[in-house]
Amino acid sequence: MKLETILVPYDGSEQAKRALEYAKDLAAIAGGACYVRAVHVMPSDLINEKDLDGSSLEGVPLGLLGREEYQGLLSKVVDRARERVKEGLRDIIDEMGDSLVVDVIADSSA
């Protein structure tokens, strides 16, 4: 069996960081032809105005936003969350380079 991708759920905990270290070692054993994909699931129902870092919804409840506005908001929040996750994983990213992919997904549940 050839390993191509190792999927590691990531929530910022010490256990998740240890799991990434383990996946990194496993990928090295696989000969470097393997990617480690760290996935952080961010519940979309918990998105609020504080996640916008200075942007504003101008008092409009999330449920009343149009589809395009909501997708734009979600995109901004996911991009910011991805940067926070990458910052928390900076040492592992520096070691692994392109063999580590960091994803952030906004969903209603993990």
Rank of each mutant, 00 (worst) to 15 (best):
M1R: 06
M1D: 04
M1S: 09
K2P: 15
L3A: 09
L3F: 05
E4P: 00
T5D: 12
T5K: 12
I6C: 14
I6P: 09
I6T: 08
Y10R: 10
D11K: 11
G12M: 04
G12E: 13
G12T: 10
S13T: 15
E14T: 14
E14F: 00
E14P: 05
Q15L: 10
A16L: 04
A16H: 12
K17F: 00
K17H: 07
R18S: 08
A19V: 01
A19Y: 00
A19R: 06
L20I: 01
L20Q: 00
Y22A: 05
K24T: 15
D25I: 05
D25E: 13
D25T: 01
L26W: 10
A27D: 01
A30Y: 04
A33M: 01
C34Y: 07
C34D: 02
Y35V: 01
Y35R: 14
R37I: 03
A38C: 06
A38W: 03
V39S: 13
V41A: 15
V41M: 09
M42I: 02
M42A: 12
M42H: 14
D45E: 06
D45K: 11
L46G: 13
L46D: 02
N48G: 15
N48W: 06
N48S: 15
N48D: 14
E49D: 14
E49S: 07
K50H: 10
D51M: 04
L52R: 12
D53N: 14
D53T: 10
G54H: 06
G54Q: 10
G54A: 12
S55L: 13
S55P: 00
S55Q: 11
S55V: 03
S55D: 12
L57S: 12
E58H: 12
G59S: 07
G59Y: 01
G59C: 10
V60S: 06
V60Q: 12
L62C: 00
L64E: 14
L64R: 09
L65R: 07
L65E: 01
R67H: 04
E69K: 05
E69F: 00
Y70H: 01
Y70I: 02
Y70R: 08
Q71F: 14
Q71K: 14
G72K: 07
L73G: 08
L73H: 04
L74Q: 12
L74T: 07
S75C: 04
K76L: 11
V78D: 07
D79N: 04
D79F: 00
R80P: 00
A81M: 07
A81S: 10
R82A: 13
R82E: 15
E83G: 06
V85S: 13
V85R: 03
V85N: 06
K86S: 09
K86E: 15
E87K: 09
L89E: 05
R90M: 02
D91K: 09
D91G: 05
I93F: 02
I93V: 13
D94E: 09
E95N: 12
G97H: 04
D98W: 05
L100Q: 06
V102T: 10
D103I: 08
V104N: 06
A106Q: 05
